[in-house]
Write a protein that binds this DNA or RNA. Structure first.
Lengths: 141, 141
DNA sequence: ATGAGTGCAAACCGTTTGCAATCGG
DNA sequence: CCGATTGCAAACGGTTTGCACTCAT
C-alpha cells in the first residue's frame, strides 16, 4: 500500500494527466479494505467526484493494471474486483464473508514450483495463488 | 481423468438423465487436452451431436461444476474455460502458448498455508493455485 | 405418461467503442 | 492553446431466462 502522493507521482511519471475523475478513483482504491468491482469503484468514487463515469473507471483501471499498480482479484462469484497492489509478487487472502483482503508479500512457493517443473517438464513462467478464509472479525460471528 | 462409463455412472447416481446432448458434452471434455470455453465445447460437441445448443452447454457445465467433476480454469485473457477434474484437490499448470493443461494432484501448500493463517489471523478455508509455463513441446519451438 | 431436459429467441449485464464536448498542463 | 481525457449513448459478447416442444425413463 502506498499513499496518495507516491501513487500520483508514479502516475505522472508515465505521462498520464492527473484529472479529477482519476484522483477520485485512486482515492477510492486507497481507502478500500477489499477488492472492488468497477461498479463499486464508481459508486464510492462519486463521493469524491460526483460526475465520475463508469467508462472512466474501466479506462483508469486498465492503465493502473498495465503499470502494475492494481491487479484484478478473482472473487468467489466469478466476477473480479480490483485492488491496489504492492509492487512485486504478492498473493491475496480474501475473507469468504466480508471480502476483506490481506496481501501476502513473501512467496514461499519456490521449492514447490521447482518440483512441479521437474515432474511435468514444464518451464514455469508464473503462478497465481488466491487463498480464501475467514478474517478474524468474521470468525467471531 | 476418468473414462466415459465412470463419469456416466456418477452422473446418473445424482439422478440426472443422460441425454444425447449431455453425452456429447462429456465426450468433448474427456477428449480435451486443455480447458475449453463454453463456445469451444459447443463447437466440438456438435461433432458428437449436431443439434447441441449453447444453452445446454452452460446448464450441463453448471451441474458438472456442482458435482465437482469439472472446474473453471482462469485463462490468461480473463475468460475462463472448463476442464474435467480428478476428484479432490488439484492444481493446474497451463501452457502459455498452446494451453495444454497438466493437473498436479498432490498439494504441498500445507505448511505455507499454516504460516499464512498464523501471520494474518485468518482461518483458511480454501485456496486456488494456477501455474503457467511452457509445456515441453512448446519449449522446443 | 410425465417430469426432466432441450433449443430458440429475447432479455440481461458487464464491458468496449465512437464521438463531440471538456479539461489539464 | 492543443491534445489527452471525459461522459454519453450505442454496440457488443458472453451468459441467463421464459417458454413450448421433446425425450429418457
Amino acid at each position: 500500500m502506498t499513499d496518495f502522493d507516491t501513487l500520483a507521482g508514479q502516475w505522472r511519471a508515465e505521462g498520464h494527466k492527473l484529472t479529477q475523475p482519476r484522483r477520485a478513483i485512486l482515492k477510492t482504491l486507497l481507502a478500500a479494505a477489499r477488492p472492488l468491482s468497477p461498479a463499486e469503484i464508481l459508486e464510492r468514487g462519486q463521493t469524491f467526484y460526483a460526475d465520475l463515469g463508469l467508462v472512466t473507471v474501466y479506462r483508469t483501471l486498465e492503465i493502473l493494471e498495465a503499470m502494475g499498480l492494481a491487479r484484478p482479484v478473482h472473487l468467489a462469484d466469478g466476477c473480479h474486483g480490483y485492488a491496489l497492489s504492492t509492487p512485486g509478487h504478492t498473493h491475496h487472502v480474501v475473507c469468504d464473508r466480508c471480502h476483506a483482503v490481506v496481501e501476502i508479500v513473501g512467496c514461499a512457493l519456490g521449492d514447490f514450483l521447482d518440483s512441479v517443473a521437474e515432474r511435468t517438464g514444464y518451464t514455469i513462467t508464473g503462478h497465481w495463488l488466491e487463498i480464501s478464509g475467514l478474517c478474524p472479525e468474521c470468525q467471531q460471528k
